[in-house]
Design a protein around this nucleic acid. Structure first.
Length: 875
RNA sequence: GCCCCUGUGGCGGAAUUGGUAGACGCGCCUGACUCAAAAUCAGGUGGUGGAAACAUCGUGCUGGUUCGAGUCCGGCCAGGGGCACCA
């Protein structure tokens, strides 16, 4: 019996067309079934779908198809994160306008996505560069502004010299721009900010509720928000020493217990008091200028030595005005955190100690580590930053760190100067407001107008969207909007006088902060969201994407959803109830003897025993096999969709992506593995073909009894069903793959052992087994599954079929075989009735030869019976 | 420097969450089919000893808890990630 070889190319195209023609994946908002919203992070339309995308969307598609089979009304949309710099760079390099460039890329990538057979509702497709999308974003910007969630302020910002634009803190990784990799400089600019800090506490607290998020991402967000509880202490200054008679200085600390160890105060170089003093002290002004200079590049900043300048000002210790503390300006104090001023306790803070040692300010240990004799506890080069008992601290002596903090806070809060308390408890966050101004063209225009008479005026809602002009030039660096001859010149909507449009555009992360909400009703024109739709669908039940967005996109979206809730655009605060971060696709690298990289497609791998060797396929030239790395153009180790889907088909690529590694880990793309997946596709095809030959007709009545062969097959089918059902729910697709393999092996063996003329009961069981098998692999390999479904004689679409129903009786055996251990080592097996009592099991075990021998006539010390698991005899 | 995660055959990885370590796949070895190759099918594949039954060791190292530890606890080592003058 021969079966035709499975033709992936034609078959996949055929089913894709059928799904499309029948609108199988279009989702209705008024469908009464329970909802399930699956979403993969939408792509930037770079023009090329790479295997990382394939993995991401395959995972999402498995979830979508499985949930659909489980009876949910599944929303699985797709769109384009279409604003961004690459389009502008293409415009500069290739003289193509960003708009047609982006549109062409979208068309290409959409066609590639369709080749993968994803069950996407394309009727909801959106692109963020479309005015029908960004007009709503402008509307929300204005609403947020009115709600006090937008602010225009002057501050130090990260300037990317390559991209010629400002970046948010989250977009600076190790001092470099997240995209350009250029060293970021600090610049002082007036910018638009979203007040993400307004939600700092809530964003932090709510992380606890995100139970279906990876712990790792939750931790990263907690650290990024960086809450610390401390005390704001108002130090008195000796007014005679200050530039204009200033008498107070606020300092934030989390270690108020060490207050008696204070040796100095330090101000950030740009602290108002430092600037005031600098007007009267040229040397200080020079020092501050120097700090600013070295402060431009993050890298230098990290290596820079602690430096300070004694301002001559004197502060008084809050508990003893006779203790005078010098006030320095120091390069390591940050203006943006706390009050921009600190008190230095050298004994218990390494930075303060380095500083004090350099300027000979001395140190007094005030916290004694546990187990240390206070009498000979001295600090030289290493500060003690841990907890302990207080020493050298008058009324605090003997207290624990915690008690001393409380005592200091209590006493200082009770003190007043003027009529203000000397201290108050304060919570500080590391999180900064989100700077969204970008000095670029290809982004969403910020809908405001600058008027000399009226100040900053919002664009009236009737005038939205503020459209990007299309006639722009990219011949020079900088922002083309700013250079446009007419676009920015407008009349003030308030006074009618001449005014200027804002030429900055929004960070593209704003675009991606609410697209998931827009998908719930992308048709509504009068508002960003339809409240019924957005409240029905959100939060996203399963969101899938890369770990690189752990704090960027995922934190911004959490903020944005809260802001939408505050302005009435959504009824929820958390956008993503479940998050899954998938690993990267990596590949071996190959290099010639001259060090140049060679693409996998040009390489031939030879194996000799366990040794692997690589050669250039064309010439046989030997190549060095390099480390396995993230796919990149520079290492030339990329694999394109065409390389995979071309002959072996999308199903093969999808199956391989899911088979080896757990989805959260990196998967190594190997030629051998891909071939293995292709072989399995063929094997399933043959297997289902053979099964179809003997399988009963679909409506054959269920036989009253099953013979041993039929029963064994049914058991294997239902065992696989039970296991795959559980593991697909837990997104453990690699384990699902193993179960399907196991079942296919058992099925094939069963068919091979068959007599020529199978009995009716077996023919019924074969149909059942085949239909279960096909439905189990359908979410992963939908085209092959549809084709097999048709081969089995069904006329329905498998894409809309229900998940098989488990018969639990079939996976319960009447007898169980338990391993028998003697002193913890396995020595025998015992088979007992499933419902055997513990004494019965014990009796059976003690009767075993191996146990008798081991006991040597003596009674066992102990027999541990764990029903259905194991028996352990302690001799 | 601080915080977190991960270490299991030649490789990717399973292990019912404290109960038979190595499922499943890749690779490799042997055999069948073939003039031959590919494809396919059958068998084998952690180390050591043994013809075999079997014995014995074995989840980075080390100590502990337990009848029983890959899984829990303590201390190391290695690899990966996040944050980084955050007071």
């Amino acid at each position: 019996m021969t079966t035709e070889r499975y033709n992936a190319r034609d078959t996949e195209a055929r089913w894709q067309k059928i799904w499309e023609d029948q609108n199988v994946f279009a989702t209705r908002n008024d469908d009464p079934r329970p909802k399930y919203y699956v979403l993969e992070m939408f792509p930037y339309p770079s023009g090329k779908l790479h295997v990382g995308h394939v993995r991401n969307y395959t995972i999402g598609d498995v979830v979508a198809r499985h949930k659909r089979a489980m009876g949910f009304n599944v929303l699985h949309p797709m769109g384009w994160d279409a604003f961004g710099l690459p389009a502008e760079n293409a415009a500069i390099e290739r003289k193509i306008h960003p708009k047609p460039w982006t549109e062409a890329n979208i068309a290409t990538m959409k066609a590639q996505l369709k080749l993968m057979g994803l069950s996407i509702d394309w009727t909801r497709e959106i692109a963020t560069c479309d005015p029908s999308y960004y007009k709503h974003q402008q509307k929300m910007f204005l609403d947020f502004w009115r709600a006090g969630l937008v602010e225009r302020k002057n501050s130090k910002v990260n300037w990317d010299p390559v991209e010629q634009t400002v970046l948010a803190n989250e977009q600076v990784i190790e001092g470099r721009g997240w995209r350009s990799g250029a060293l970021v400089e600090q610049r002082e600019l007036t910018q638009w900010f979203f007040k993400i800090t307004a939600f700092a506490q809530d964003l932090l607290d709510s992380i606890d509720r995100l139970e279906r998020w990876p712990e790792k991402v939750r931790l990263m967000q907690r650290n990024w928000i960086g809450r610390s509880e401390g005390l704001l202490i108002r130090f008195a200054l000796d007014a005679a020493t200050t530039p204009s008679g200033e008498s107070e200085l606020d300092v934030f600390t989390t270690r108020h217990d060490t207050l008696f160890g204070a040796k100095f105060l330090a101000l950030a170089p740009d602290h108002p008091l430092a600037l005031a003093a600098a007007t009267k002290d040229p040397a200080l002004a020079a020092f501050i200028a120097e700090c600013r200079h070295t402060g431009t590049a993050q890298e230098l900043l990290e290596k820079a030595e602690k430096q300070g300048f004694d301002t001559g000002m004197v502060a008084l210790h809050p508990f003893d005005p006779d203790l005078k503390l010098p006030v320095y300006v120091a390069n390591f104090v940050l203006l943006e955190y706390g009050t921009g001023a600190i008190f230095g306790c050298p004994a218990h803070d390494q930075r303060d100690l380095d500083f004090a040692n350099k300027y000979r300010l001395g140190n007094t240990p005030v916290v004694c580590p546990p187990g240390q004799d206070p009498k000979n506890f001295v600090i030289t080069d290493t500060a003690y930053e841990g907890d302990g008992r207080l020493i050298n601290s008058r009324f605090l002596d003997g207290m624990t760190t915690e008690a001393a903090k409380e005592e200091v806070a209590r006493r200082l809060e009770a003190q007043t100067r003027g009529n203000r308390p000397v201290a108050q408890r304060q919570i500080n966050f590391r999180l900064r407001d989100w700077g969204i101004s970008r000095q670029r063209y290809w982004g969403c225009p910020i809908p405001v107008i600058h008027c000399e008479a009226c100040g900053i005026v919002p664009v009236p809602e009737a005038d939205l969207p503020v459209r990007l002009p299309e006639d722009v030039e990219f011949d020079r660096p900088g922002n083309p909007l700013d250079r446009h001859p007419t676009w920015k010149h407008v009349t003030c909507p308030s006074c009618g006088g001449p005014a200027r449009r804002e030429t900055d555009t929004m960070d593209t992360f704003v675009d991606s902060s609410w697209y998931f909400a827009r998908f719930t009703d992308p048709w509504i024109e009068t508002a960003p969201t339809d409240r019924a739709a957005v409240d029905h669908w959100l939060p996203v039940d399963q969101y899938i994407g890369g770990i690189e967005h752990a704090v960027l996109h995922l934190l911004y979206s959490r903020f944005f959803t809260r802001a939408m809730q505050a302005t009435g655009h959504a009824g929820v605060d958390e956008p993503f109830a479940g998050l899954f971060t998938q690993g990267m696709v990596v590949h071996e690298t190959y290099r010639r003897s001259d060090g140049s990289y060679v693409e996998p497609a040009e390489v031939r791998i030879e194996t000799q025993g366990e040794a692997r060797r690589a050669r250039l396929a064309a010439t046989g030239e030997p190549l060095e096999i390099g480390p396995i790395e993230k796919m990149s153009k520079s290492k030339r180790n990329t694999v394109g969709l065409d390389d995979i889907a071309g002959t072996a088909g999308a199903d093969t690529a999808r199956w391989f992506m899911l088979s080896d590694s757990p989805p959260e880990r990196d998967v190594i793309w190997t030629e051998e593995g891909a071939q293995g997946a292709w072989r399995f596709v063929q094997r399933l095809w043959r297997l289902v073909g053979e099964a179809a030959q003997i399988a009963a007709v679909a409506d054959m009545p269920r036989p009253p009894v099953f013979g041993p062969a039929a029963l064994a097959l049914r058991k294997a089918a239902h065992r696989a069903l039970a296991r795959v059902s559980e593991d697909v729910e837990r997104l453990r697709f690699n384990v699902c793959v193993a179960h399907i393999h196991e079942f296919a092996n058992a099925f094939q063996t069963s068919l091979a052992e068959l007599e020529d003329e199978p009995m009716a009961d077996y023919r019924w069981a074969a149909r059942e087994a085949a239909s279960i098998l096909v439905r189990l692999f359908h979410p992963m390999m939908p085209h092959l599954a549809e084709e097999c479904w048709a081969v089995l004689g069904y006329s329905t679409l498998l894409a809309t079929e229900a998940w098989p129903v488990l018969e639990p009786d079939l996976i319960l055996e009447n007898t169980v075989t338990l391993p028998v251990q003697i002193n913890g080592k396995k020595r025998a097996d015992v088979t007992v009735r499933r419902d055997a009592t513990i004494p019965e099991i014990e009796a059976a075990v003690l009767g075993l030869d191996a146990v008798q021998r081991a006991l040597d006539g003596k009674p066992p010390k102990k027999v541990i019976v764990v029903p259905h698991r194991i028996v352990n005899v302690v001799a």
